[in-house]
Design a protein around this nucleic acid. Structure first.
Lengths: 193, 193
DNA sequence: CCGGTTTGTAAGCACCTGCTTACAACGCTA
DNA sequence: TAGCGTTGTAAGCAGGTGCTTACAAACCGG
């Protein structure tokens, strides 16, 4: 709820931005399916017809939201810090002005629309590609997928299902437990049997 | 030739079972939200009004489906094999007569209804409790949650988003890569800093 | 055969969904 | 100031949702 409903009288750019912000929040909180265009318009303080005028459809808006900030963190974080940085972002409560919440949206929108699928592929591919640079082992891609899977699983258990003690655990403790295990995964040769 | 639809003429028990089977399949395939009561009734070859007569509501049916077979694997698998067994179940394509698909449903129904939340808590709690017996370290519960998170994350990336190379990887390879990392997670003392 | 109960069916209700349309209010500019 | 494109609004549409109701057909004990 941006409290400037009266302040913005005739400003298409601001309305578009408000719709995008509201959509980003709601998609991250509820996923694609359980977010309605009426909810988005209401939170943005705009008429829902404008959503369709500016973005065409709900799916198209979803795509714009994902494209806008989905990969920002990825581009500004060195690979060797990506795992820990992403993990901490996922673990900390969403602050204003924090990186965009693409992984959360990824989680909450599993099994949703076609737009969701395309987004899944893109976001997952990008993260895994960077993570794969962290190991010289032959199965680099697969190992990277497993790291990504862990990130997503932690986000799932923590922010979606709220399972304790994980949900309330100190991010430092989680990082301390996980780091050596990830190191094992990335560095150890696969051994037969 | 009498068609199979007439074969079950007046048999409430069989109709209930058919509805349960259909619901279990569809919830696992699409999650709670994207499964409609009309779909369930259609796959079961039954009238949708019967679904409400026998189960009261869609949410209630969901609860019955989860309660029916959700924890079967948990009760018949020794703790030290639980991780690998569950992982392999998650990795293999669903066969007929295979264990119930509670974790898949868990995944696909994230962020769904209240019934989904209750189920999430129950299933997650049971798995984590058993997994926690695998370590003597102080943070046993937290470590168990992290193992569970990895399981769910792998299921998510593999069966929901279909990301390659994980989606098509040999289960043996995945197990070989993951086992030492899980061992590290469970056995290693948390070290400060 | 009769009456009541159980099982199955078709139709519909009230609500929600994404999306569209018709129109009013505004502000630029000629 | 008159005209006109732009921005915002209210109302509604077509289809889908969970769920209910009214009723017919089958079964069973008497």
């Amino acid at each position: 709820m941006t409290g400037e409903q009266q302040a913005r009288k005739r400003d298409a750019a601001a309305t578009k931005a408000a719709l995008l912000d509201a959509a980003e929040e709601l998609f991250a909180e509820r996923g694609f399916d359980r977010t309605t265009v009426r909810d988005i318009a209401k939170r943005a303080g705009a008429n829902q017809a404008l959503l369709f005028r500016y973005f065409g459809s709900k799916e198209s808006l979803f795509g714009v939201v994902m494209a806008r900030g989905g990969l920002a963190q990825l581009e500004t974080t060195p690979p060797e810090q990506l795992f820990e940085t992403t993990l901490r972002t996922l673990l900390e409560p969403p602050r204003d002005g924090s990186p965009h919440r693409s992984l959360e949206t990824y989680l909450r929108s599993t099994g949703s629309s076609g737009a969701g699928t395309a987004m899944h592929e893109q976001v997952g591919e990008e993260y895994a590609r960077v993570l794969a640079t962290l190991t010289d082992q032959p199965d680099a891609q697969l190992r990277a997928d497993l790291v990504l899977a862990w990130l997503l699983g932690i986000g799932l258990v923590r922010s979606v299902t709220g399972k304790e003690p994980l949900a309330s655990a100190d991010p430092d403790d989680i990082v301390r437990l996980i780091r050596p295990a990830v190191q094992t995964l990335l560095e150890r040769n696969g051994q037969p049997g």
